[in-house]
């Protein structure tokens, strides 16, 4: 597991988490390059299918970052996203992927520091967990997944 660099997909809402990522950048706060950000108009836009597909395509970890509770620009997108994350975590158990590989986090636009911290903590956690079992299984097979 040495030299394992996880691929982490972060679905970040435009109004808070993505702005926080921007803020982290302008404050020159380092965070792991493992985190690939996908900007979404609202965390509530993130569908179970987006998350599941991310794992299918080789992500080792995924997180959905929305506004702080009560602060969603679209009122309740973040709470809906959190429920969806819970639903997918159960599905992951059925599939045989550790549900810890998926998380919901909340950030405000001004939390550049917190963004960098979350990115680092999650990357470390996934590094500990090792490569996703899907990635390992794919590597052990020829003729990859059809979509």
């Amino acid at each position: 597991m040495k030299n394992f660099e996880p691929v982490i997909v972060a679905f970040c809402c435009h109004y808070c988490a993505y702005t926080a990522a921007d803020m982290a950048g302008s404050q020159r706060l380092p965070y792991p390059a493992n985190v690939k950000i996908v900007r979404v108009p609202c965390s509530g836009k993130v569908d179970a299918l987006h998350i599941v597909k991310a794992f299918e395509k080789g992500a080792d970890g995924v997180y959905v970052a929305g506004c702080l509770e009560g602060d969603c620009h679209f009122k309740s997108g973040n709470t809906k996203a959190a429920r969806r994350v819970e639903y997918v975590r159960k599905y992951m158990e059925e599939i045989g992927i550790e549900p810890e590989r998926l998380e919901m986090v909340y950030l405000s636009a001004g939390m550049g520091y917190r963004f960098a911290e979350v990115a680092t903590t999650i990357t470390e956690k996934i590094r500990e967990l090792g490569p996703s079992p899907i990635k390992s299984a794919t590597a052990g097979q020829t003729g990859q997944v059809a979509c």
Binding site: A48, L49, F55, E94, I95, G96, I134, Q141
Partner: peptide, 14 residues
Amino acid sequence: LLASGLQMALLKSG
């Protein structure tokens, strides 16, 4: 969702 989940679960069993 099912296609993706099924594909992954099957892949795990080789």
